[in-house]
Design a protein around this nucleic acid. Structure first.
Lengths: 117, 117
DNA sequence: AGTATTATTGGCGATATGGCCAACAATGTC
DNA sequence: GACATTGTTGGCCATATCGCCAATAATACT
């Protein structure tokens, strides 16, 4: 494994980490519907607004969301709307769920249907 | 957000967390190629075998891999072979990369009710 | 100007995660 | 049985993450 591989794995791990929190997942799902300001997300999450603001900074830093200023408000919106969907796919491939076609390789994802919207 | 939602988000966060580590991602990629014993993964990762064993326990607990005993060896294999592929998809949807996979509709989030102005 | 609203940042304690060592368990070999 | 090989588990320490409070910034309103 060379240095480039190491960097790639680290970046990918960072991306996944940025998603790996229930509050951030909730926010991502809410943003899939439409853009929201911090207060609206804060109410849904049920945490302190400073906590939510920091969560959003993490998502932003990962390139998953972007913010648009509107007066004193910060509206956040997704950069790409299909993230949760792919998590669905990962979820479905685990043990306990029998949707996985035996022997499928990484290069041939098992169900196109799951990729489309 | 009801209790079921909260549980779902927690489970999903746990799943992502279990993937969100460079060593575990490397192992997942190696296992996409073929099953491997702990020693082989340990050599590739370059960490202590006890560390790798614990990483594998995390992946196993998440339902991403399963182990098959073979003498004193533990061979690990993927439960579903296509996890990395979906991470590719998430990666491609971030800012900096304009392409959103599968012609997703989510590129233009609806603008509805926002808070005040 | 003064006040209110919205959001961000710094800091701190609590908790979780990661990595190695030591010890142990299980199997195979002599 | 004695020993080697392969893995797992418990423990400990270092580091990272999380969540709230206090302070600050930026805009809007009167």
């Amino acid at each position: 494994m060379d240095a480039a591989d190491k960097t790639r794995l680290n970046q990918r791990a960072t991306l996944l980490k940025s998603l790996a929190h229930p509050s951030r997942l909730l926010m991502m799902e809410m943003l899939e519907e439409r853009p929201r300001c911090v207060s609206e997300l804060t109410e849904a999450v049920g945490a302190d607004i400073t906590t939510v603001s920091k969560h959003l900074a993490i998502l932003k830093r990962a390139g998953l969301v972007k913010d648009v200023k509107r007066g004193t408000y910060s509206d956040y919106e997704l950069v790409c709307g299909c993230v949760s969907h792919f998590i669905d796919c990962i979820e479905q491939g685990r043990s306990g769920q029998e949707v996985c076609v035996a022997g499928s390789a990484a290069t041939s994802p098992r169900q196109e249907k799951q990729i489309e919207h």
